[in-house]
Write a protein that binds this DNA or RNA. Sequence first.
DNA 1: ACCCGCCTTTGATTTTGATCAAGTCGCCGA
DNA 2: TCGGCGACTTGATCAAAATCAAAGGCGGGT
Lengths: 245, 245
Amino acid sequence: MQIVNEHRRKDIHNSDIPTVCAACEARHGGVCGTLTPDQLLDLSRHSTRRSIEPGREVIGQGETTDSYANIINGVVKLSKVLADGRQQIVGLQFAPDFMGRPFTRESALTAEAAVDTDICCFPRTVIDRLVSEAPGLEHRLHEQALKELDEARDWMLTLGRKTAQEKVASFLYIIATHIDPEKGTANEFDLPLSRADIADYLGLTIETVSRQITKLRKDNVIRIENSRHVTVPSLDRLMHVAGID
Amino acid sequence: MQIVNEHRRKDIHNSDIPTVCAACEARHGGVCGTLTPDQLLDLSRHSTRRSIEPGREVIGQGETTDSYANIINGVVKLSKVLADGRQQIVGLQFAPDFMGRPFTRESALTAEAAVDTDICCFPRTVIDRLVSEAPGLEHRLHEQALKELDEARDWMLTLGRKTAQEKVASFLYIIATHIDPEKGTANEFDLPLSRADIADYLGLTIETVSRQITKLRKDNVIRIENSRHVTVPSLDRLMHVAGID
DNA sequence: ACCCGCCTTTGATTTTGATCAAGTCGCCGA
DNA sequence: TCGGCGACTTGATCAAAATCAAAGGCGGGT
């Protein structure tokens, strides 16, 4: 099964016509924005909010997916594995991304929470029905797909052509720009990924990631506490090291 | 400018109501299938068929795009470059793919013909208008985006976690399965890419690509003539070398 | 046919990052 | 407070691919 830990379900009958998805409550830029109040109510009625602890699998590679979800907060890793166990993280999703694969029941990848993550789940039947009723919803999902495609292609450049040093700096830059979406770029943040996860994201080994982080620290590009909390004195400098022009 | 070589324009007034795009003529699985005969006529009237010679740029990174296109035959490379010139091919498009980036005027990548390629161009104004009139068209574009996303993520696994040998075998497998879409997988074909292009696609150097191709030949996984014409005795064997389970 | 230029191959050497192998740090529970 | 365990770091060595360098081959033009 894909959803791990049912947390609570908001009683939607307290609000008459919600202006946001009742289950999601706040910030959920996912799909709700394009719906009419009636459709939103419909969706809320079928939504479930869930909390997922780090390392817990949301959807396994090859399993059938019966739901979509908005990420309310937290970070989700999307990864693929080779038969012999080599693993590659092919994307990270942050709040308020929409997760799920329209128009196919089979998932080509594994989704796993990287940190404590809350998601708001919708059964696929409801989304599929709403898509056919509200053309704006398909447009919204289409834009999400295009955004993920752009990110994937940017990352291909990183994987194929950057040095270990540039890869690690690129990763830190991604986190700085995504971890706190309302603030935009942040120069202080906690890494949502372990060294092993970072290695899987960058196509490197744990040891190489560790060494490169040490090097960035020694070069005063970053400061680091508890191996997770990062401070970036100059984001321009970080970008430069990352090879981003 | 993005389109290079105007070839000819079909006189669409000869046919009354076309059942396929008149400019595209045959095989053009791109977008036409979802349109009504009237819309198809509309589209055909504004379409232009063009031929592009190898190495010719269709759309440059950072330029504004004023058109979409169906690939009628040939292969188009999509690539990104770093400031210092390092290049990564982030996707290949084959007939009958639809090319172009909905909802944004700025291209994040460079599109360039790999071999002699014919495309059928539509002005973005026409496509954007048809999208708002025909919901099926957006669905078609959405599916194209999802297909490209899947391919990009598969390739990220190749770039991040496979050896040079596996990368080259994976590339040959991609070509075998895409070069001739109506036949499905082919075990004899011409490579549409030079060694330099293959290297840019695989995140390797020319020399490494050449050595790995030589090794595949010596191991009897492939036969090769003129450095471009490839025969694959056993596609299963090739898949196995490519690390595809 | 011959030459020239480009693409490809092959060889020698170097470099980067992987692998193997110990530590160290920090956190949680006894 | 003390272990113990998991995550991270650091060091030594190795291997894969990059780089540097020099030939081949193939095709197009004269």
